[in-house]
């Protein structure tokens, strides 16, 4: 198994290598002068020249690539053209809301989708099963921003249950250190760590993150519920399930300990693959709900044609996808001891 894990980790290197080459070439494969593309339609020749100089676009392509890749290995993603700040710093500043949104969404989606899928498989052919499947098809068909605006309209504007937009951190100032600096911790409600104003903490955090997580999570719920249903249904036809029933185990034990556990490999796989869908959806969700995360950074970077940020974000998102799928692949050996590579 150790050999498999090592082989699997090594296999991520070519994938990330291809992503890096692709991201690098993206600017050069597009028609026209890369410096002019970044500078935009209203740039003077001097601006274009300045950008060409800053990004080293006047050097041979292979030199550019190796310089860029070398910097990448040192954690240097370049400098933003628009704000002149290091890209890694900008990403660091925005990562908390995105990470929080993605985590709450995954937890919400898995907690809802897996029981729904198991229930649909157990009650296969009944109205419960059909409702779950209709919900799954709808989840795939309704775009995120439509779900988001519908929820804002009903739950926020009319019923006032949730705030319309924005993000509040779960981190608050819990005290002051000897040096006068604020001590940051997690609490229910308190003073925000960056602005120094009240209104942060777990309670405001969940009030603000609930709607974005549901809007972003529904397509993911549809995907996971569908695969869970198919996978559990297949396992339910196995002989050992009949044996489990025959020896008098309760349906709950049969479903969870015998069926779900054996059906877990495809479910975990789809959770991993679905991460790409989730990360793409983050961009839209953050735009609708005005959440200052990586998705908003992406949209801002695109509007300003801030190419180093776009490059950095694609690399980070692809890296997260590859890492999660690596963990999924490794988890197979724990979920199904028969899997030996």
């Amino acid at each position: 198994m150790f050999g498999y894990v090592i082989r699997r980790i090594l296999a991520t290197i070519p994938v990330m290598g291809v992503v890096a080459i692709f991201v690098f070439l993206l600017l050069h494969l597009t028609p026209g002068d890369p410096a002019a593309v970044i500078a935009g339609d209203y740039a003077s020749p001097a601006d274009v020249e300045r950008i060409r100089e800053t990004l080293g676009l006047n050097r041979p392509l292979h030199i550019q690539f190796f310089t860029w890749a070398g910097q990448l290995f040192q954690g240097d993603l370049g400098v933003s053209i628009f704000s002149k700040q290091p890209v890694i710093k900008l990403i660091g500043q925005r990562i908390e809301p995105t990470l929080a949104l993605a985590t709450t969404t995954i937890i919400f989606a898995v907690l809802l989708a897996v029981p729904l899928g198991v229930l649909a498989a157990w009650k296969s052919g009944t109205w419960i099963d059909r409702s779950v499947m209709v919900f799954a098809v709808l989840g795939f068909s309704v775009p995120i921003f439509i779900i988001a605006y519908s929820m804002i309209w009903t739950l926020s504007i009319h019923l006032h249950w949730f705030p319309v937009q924005g993000y509040k951190s779960f981190l608050i100032q819990t005290g002051t250190g000897i040096d006068g600096a604020a001590i940051i911790g997690i609490g229910f409600e308190g003073i925000c760590r960056d602005s120094g104003r009240a209104g942060c903490g777990l309670v405001p955090f969940f009030r603000h993150i609930a709607l974005p997580s549901i809007a972003l999570g529904l397509v993911y719920v549809a995907l996971i519920a569908r695969i869970t249903r198919a996978s559990v249904m297949e396992v339910l036809t196995e002989d050992y399930i009949r044996t489990a029933h025959a020896k008098g185990l309760s349906p709950r034990v049969v479903l969870i300990r015998h069926a779900l556990k054996n059906a877990s490999v495809p479910i975990v796989t789809i959770i991993g693959i679905g991460i790409a869908l989730l990360l793409g959806g983050v961009v839209v969700t953050e735009s609708v709900f005005n959440i200052p995360g990586l998705g908003r950074l992406t949209v801002d970077a695109i509007l300003h044609r801030d190419y180093p940020i776009i490059q950095g974000l694609i690399l980070i998102f692809a890296g997260v996808y590859v890492l999660i799928n690596l963990l999924v692949d490794i988890s197979y050996t724990f979920l199904d001891p028969r899997i030996r590579y």
């Binding site: 994938v15 990330m16 692709f22 961009v283 694609i314 998102f317 692809a318 590859v322």
Partner: peptide
């Protein structure tokens, strides 16, 4: 290998 690389990038992005 190339296809695996492209698939790692979220399609919307």
């Amino acid at each position: 290998r190339f296809m695996d690389g492209i698939m790692a990038i979220p399609s919307i992005l």
